[in-house]
Simulated scan of single mutants.
Amino acid sequence: MTTGVSISFGFWTACDGGVGQSQDDSIVGTKQARHSLAIMPIPGSLSSSSPDLLQPATSVLDFSNPSAVGFYYIPDQVIRVFKADQQSCYIIISKDTTAKDVVSHVVNEFGLLAASDTYSLCEVSISPEGVIKQRRLPDQLSKLADRIQLNGRYYLKNNMETETLCSDDDAQELLRESQISLLQLSTVELAAQLSMRDFDLFRNIESTEYLEDLFKLDGTYRVARDDAGLTHLKQFEEIINQETFWVATEILREPNTMKRMKTIKLFIKIALHCRECKNFNSMFAIISGLNLAPFMETA
Rank of each mutant, 00 (worst) to 15 (best):
Q172L: 00
Y221F: 15
E177V: 06
L252M: 15
Q179M: 09
T263G: 01
F267V: 04
L183H: 11
A248Y: 05
A192Q: 11
I268A: 03
D139K: 03
L185N: 11
N204V: 00
Y154C: 08
K262V: 10
Q193R: 15
L185E: 11
D168C: 04
S142Y: 04
N241A: 07
Q140R: 04
L194W: 15
K265R: 10
F202W: 10
L252F: 14
K234T: 08
A192L: 07
D168T: 07
T208Y: 02
T249A: 15
I268N: 01
L230D: 12
T231F: 14
Y155F: 15
D200T: 11
T208D: 07
D168G: 03
K262N: 15
F199S: 11
L211W: 07
E173Y: 00
Q193Y: 11
Y221W: 14
N159A: 03
E250N: 15
T263I: 03
R253W: 10
N204P: 01
I205A: 00
E161N: 02
R222P: 01
N159R: 08
T231E: 12
G229C: 13
T257P: 00
L185S: 07
V223C: 12
D139V: 05
Y155A: 06
G152V: 02
N256T: 05
F199E: 13
D213K: 10
Q184I: 01
F245R: 06
L144P: 06
Y221T: 07
E209M: 00
E189S: 04
T187Y: 11
K234E: 14
S178G: 04
Y154D: 04
R197H: 13
L190E: 03
R147C: 04
L185Q: 13
K157M: 15
L144D: 06
R176Y: 05
E237M: 11
L144G: 00
M196K: 10
E243M: 06
T187M: 02
Y210T: 09
I264Q: 02
N158A: 03
E189F: 10
T249C: 10
N159H: 02
E163H: 07
D227Q: 12
R203C: 06
I268M: 07
R197D: 12
R225P: 09
L211R: 04
N151W: 09
L150F: 01
Q184L: 05
K259R: 14
L156D: 02
R176G: 08
K262L: 14
F267T: 02
D170E: 07
T208H: 05
R197Q: 11
R222K: 15
I148M: 03
L141G: 01
L174Q: 07
L190K: 04
D198E: 13
F215S: 11
L141W: 08
S167A: 02
L201V: 14
I148E: 01
A192M: 05
I205N: 00
N204W: 00
E173V: 02
S195R: 03
E206K: 08
N151M: 04
S142I: 03
C166G: 00
K143F: 14
D170A: 15
R176F: 06
R153N: 04
S195I: 02
I148P: 00
N204Q: 12
M160W: 05
